[in-house]
Amino acid sequence: MAGSAQVLYSVKGVKKYYPVKGGILRRIKNHVKAVDGISVDILKGETLGVVGESGCGKSTLGRTILGLEQLTEGNLVYNGTNISGYSKKELKPFKKEMQMIFQDPYASLNPKQTVGEALEEVFIIHTNLSGKERRENAIRLLKEVGLTEEHFDRYPHEFSGGQRQRIGIARAIAINPSFIVCDEPVSALDVSVQAQVIKLLQDLQKKHELTYLFVSHDLGVVRHLCNRVLVMYLGQMVELAPVDRLYENPVHPYTEALLSSIPRPVVGAKRDRIRLQGDLPSPANPPTGCPFHTRCPIAKDHCAAERPEWREIEEGHYIACHER
């Protein structure tokens, strides 16, 4: 991405805490800090990857950005409009702009609704099209994602996982959004089907000038698809860089460890895999200072005391680490 690219969606200091209630009076005892201070500018037309371990808050980040979760703190600025704190009604025009593709294609479609009904419903919600126009549009969408008109009256259980994900994608692009959060869209699919769905996502991006936020734990897919990658750990930002720079020259020790875990398809290739010690700390009770210091191979004393600053080490390459 060139530096001149326009910012589509600016995420500023977003926090999402879930209260942990306990005791007889169900008082709030603690918070699970699912997303803890994420600031990133999503550029028009790019694919921003978000990677991290399970439970690091990447899916929550995606949902929070779409307004599906209430913000605890921070601002969301979409195309110059600060939409944080907007009511459901005020958000509705923005919902047309932002859509989501879900992880589990078996769960993201209502089993009691035919595919046609599901697609038509989007138009019922957002447009005043007649029944005939809705049907035509739904069929156009089916064709666009590689399905046919015959699929219109079928129920979700009659489809394979890949086909269902295509339906999910068709639903997401139905009202021409500009921004789509892809929440691990291919991780539930077979490898061969994954490739097809990724190809479809790429084609649609070109055709409709879409911007993706691609949440995934599959580092291979992210490298293939994304322009920039944000690495998260325990709800916090660890490293952000253009994809090639990140994969070739990871700076943060967590990113290094994460990338070294990618299996290499070369017989006899030596892997110097960095094994992290210990378990992922609980996001309800994250370590002080740098969240990674408990498992970091290069941690020093001050890492436990101070939270590292988010700084730019090269153009477009940011990290949060005291030592590098």
Partner: peptide, 26 residues
């Protein structure tokens, strides 16, 4: 808790629509 309800929310469906067209039939 099903994802299709979340999907309807992300599409901007009203609560009434979600309740009577998606929750109740299931």
């Amino acid at each position: 808790k099903q994802e299709y309800i979340m999907a309807m929310k992300s599409l901007g469906a009203s609560d009434g629509r979600i309740l009577f067209k998606h929750v109740l039939p299931n």
